[in-house]
Amino acid sequence: MLKYIGERLLAMFITLAIILTLVFCMIRMMPGGIYDELEDITQEQLDALYAKHNLDKPILVQFGIFIKNVVTDWDWGYSLKLQPNQTVWGILGDKIPITIYENIFSLMISIPLGIGFGILAAIKKNTWIDHVISVMVVICISVPSFVFASLLQYFIGFKLGLFPIVYEPGSTGFAMFYSMTLPIVALALNPIATITRYLRAELAETINSDFMLLARTKGLTEAQATVRHGIRNSILPILSTLVALFTNIMSGSLVIESIFSIPGMGGLMIKSINAIDYNVTQATLVFYSLISLGSILLCDLLYGVVDPRVRVGGKKE
């Protein structure tokens, strides 16, 4: 088990290093200078700006300084243009929690709902319940989250006035959750459908497995066998899809945040891209990479905990 964790950690660090290098170098090699549109600026001022942000040095040196600052002081540099002279970490610090809340909430409502619908569909396979769920699943998987967001915003928010149509900045606690309801729902529909579809398939297959039959022939009722053997065994493989789901939600939230004016990482990333703010863009990209790698790692570890074949044998079968 320890060896397994070690391997995972090492793999994660290697990937992170590659991503960091790639992000840093590619952003800096982008065509077009960042201060191009500043017209009434003297060459000296420009040079001073470049020097301040170390932009005058060779790219590898810049990279070295960047890494050193991040590792020693957790210093991600200054925002170049978006909010000049503010530290990148200062800008990010406000926005990360909002984005995290929004994503975690979506995931938290999609897992139980998806599992519930999946079990229902599998147990009632080929009945009208199953057919209704299957149709909903196809719709929710196919229709993009931003289309759902527009629908919810217009009909539930604007026409019916049940929920705020945009995020209320500065709200906390329940008010914050309330003003985030529509974006969270818009983000959750696709994961719910994905989990439902996956679990239905898994469970339908597990129900037909020999060990389910054995459970029944050794004297368990169908319900007992389904719960103790069927559902437990089919939820396990879902874990591996959770990573993909979470990354999906994260990227979906980029657009959803801008639709609902949520001051999170998504909006920041779009703004920084359009403003060519190297330091902010690279920090947001690193943030997304960290989240995604972190969830992969978490999932691998969870697998280790729940699947004896990994825990005892040290490998996935």
């Binding site: 793999a11 790639l22 990227s251 997304y288 995604s292 992969i296």
Partner: peptide, 9 residues
């Protein structure tokens, strides 16, 4: 292993 949003962006 690189997240799709990151690499595509």
């Amino acid at each position: 292993a690189i997240p799709q949003i990151v690499i595509v962006t």
